[in-house]
Measured scan of single mutants.
Amino acid sequence: SKNWSEDDLQLLIKAVNLFPAGTNSRWEVIANYMNIHSSSGVKRTAKDVIGKA
Rank of each mutant, 00 (worst) to 15 (best):
I36F: 10
A21R: 12
Y33F: 11
N32K: 11
D8A: 00
V29G: 13
I50N: 07
G22Y: 07
N32M: 06
I30Q: 00
D8C: 02
N3Y: 13
L11A: 02
L12G: 02
D48S: 08
A21S: 13
V29M: 15
L9T: 13
L9N: 15
N35Y: 02
I30A: 03
T23N: 05
I30S: 00
D8Q: 04
S1I: 12
M34T: 04
D8E: 11
L18V: 10
A21P: 11
L12V: 04
I13A: 15
L11S: 04
K47P: 10
A46S: 11
K43T: 13
D48G: 04
V49K: 00
H37N: 05
P20L: 01
S1H: 06
K43L: 12
K52D: 03
L9A: 13
M34Q: 03
G22S: 14
K47W: 07
S39V: 09
S25F: 07
L18E: 06
N24L: 10
D8L: 03
S5A: 02
A53G: 10
M34P: 04
A15L: 03
K2A: 07
E28V: 07
S40G: 09
S1V: 12
W4S: 03
S40I: 03
P20V: 02
E6V: 10
L9W: 12
Q10N: 11
V49R: 01
L12C: 03
A53Q: 11
N3I: 14
A15F: 01
S39A: 15
D7L: 12
A31I: 02
S25Y: 07
S1K: 15
K2W: 06
S5P: 15
V49E: 01
N35A: 05
P20C: 04
L18Y: 09
N32P: 01
D7I: 08
N35T: 06
K14V: 08
S1G: 15
I30W: 01
N17F: 06
G41Q: 11
N3S: 07
I50D: 08
D48P: 00
T45I: 06
G22N: 11
L9V: 11
A53P: 02
S25E: 09
A31V: 05
E28Y: 01
G51E: 14
T23H: 09
N17S: 12
E28M: 05
K43F: 09
D8K: 05
N3C: 07
E28S: 13
V49T: 06
Q10S: 09
N17W: 06
N32H: 15
K47D: 14
K47T: 15
N17V: 09
W4Y: 06
N32A: 12
K14C: 07
W27L: 03
A53L: 03
K43H: 09
V16K: 15
N35K: 01
V49G: 01
S39W: 09
D48K: 00
D48W: 01
I36G: 13
E28H: 06
E6C: 14
I13H: 14
A31Q: 04
